[in-house]
Simulated assay, not measured.
Amino acid sequence: MTALDWQAVSLTLKLGLYSTLILLLLATPLAWWLARRHSWLSSVIQAVVALPLVLPPTVLGFYLLMWLGPSGFVGATLESLGLDHLAFSFEGILVASVIYSLPFAVQPLVESFRQLPQGQLEAAATLGAGWWRRFWTLVIPASQGGFLVAATLSFAHTLGEFGVILMLGGSIPGETQVLSILIYDHTEAMNYDAAGNLALGLLVFSFTVLLAVYSLQKRTLGGATYAKG
């Protein structure tokens, strides 16, 4: 592997880690709200969250480019404040990655929260445990399988993102050229050996991570898991 390949590997892992951490922080309260609400508003929010599952990545990438670029509302606002717009930057593809992988974090948590024994939460409330304490001592331990699946799917999905990253970030080494983009660049240059090695490494790594996590979950939790992709 060349220095450019290792640079893309490092950037991909960095993007996956950052995206997963942000997704868990955002998805947890959102999934908790969706799991406990059954209204037209919750249905609308669920549909919005799930859009990346059916929307072509290039369409999402196009709209993000329009919003985050220099001519977009977000990009123009940032520039008016003396900051850089987010198109063709690591920060930009991080935003895109979080939005694109959001359903992979939210939906497993919603399913996990819906299966919680409400009697335990109500009993803890009658004993004087506040909401925050109930959440940390009861909800999170009982939902660890959902968090495990959400984190794994979010991270694995980020590794394979292509269309939305290409549209918003292009292919800038060290900035936006993640593994999926570099594989495309190698293929376009007819450097099939390099593309094949990177593709095989990404395939083996992704499969190994998913197999290890699902095997661990089945052995230790025995609960139902959610996966879509």
Rank of each mutant, 00 (worst) to 15 (best):
Q115M: 07
G72E: 13
A129P: 15
A96S: 05
G201H: 03
G145Y: 10
V139F: 00
L15F: 02
G130I: 06
S71Y: 06
Y214G: 08
P52H: 04
S71M: 12
A150E: 03
I22C: 03
I45F: 09
L86V: 12
Y214N: 11
G174Q: 01
F90Q: 02
A47E: 13
L116H: 01
L25N: 05
G119Q: 08
L182Q: 12
F73S: 10
A151Y: 06
A50C: 15
A189G: 15
S89E: 10
L159I: 08
R133M: 12
A189Y: 07
G61C: 06
G229S: 07
A123H: 11
L94K: 04
S215Y: 08
I181P: 01
L211Q: 14
W131T: 10
H85I: 04
L65T: 09
L30P: 00
I183W: 00
A3L: 15
I99Q: 11
P141T: 00
G146F: 01
V59Q: 07
L94C: 11
W6L: 12
L202N: 07
T176S: 04
L166N: 03
A50H: 03
I99E: 10
M1H: 08
M66P: 15
S97D: 14
L198M: 15
V49Y: 10
V209I: 08
L153Q: 09
L51W: 08
Y18N: 11
R36E: 13
L23Y: 03
D5T: 10
L24V: 04
F104N: 01
V149W: 05
L64F: 15
V164A: 00
W67Y: 12
T58D: 10
T137F: 13
R219N: 05
S180K: 07
A129G: 13
L64V: 04
T58W: 13
T12N: 13
A194V: 07
L55P: 11
A150R: 02
L138N: 14
A47N: 04
V98R: 07
I99R: 01
S19G: 14
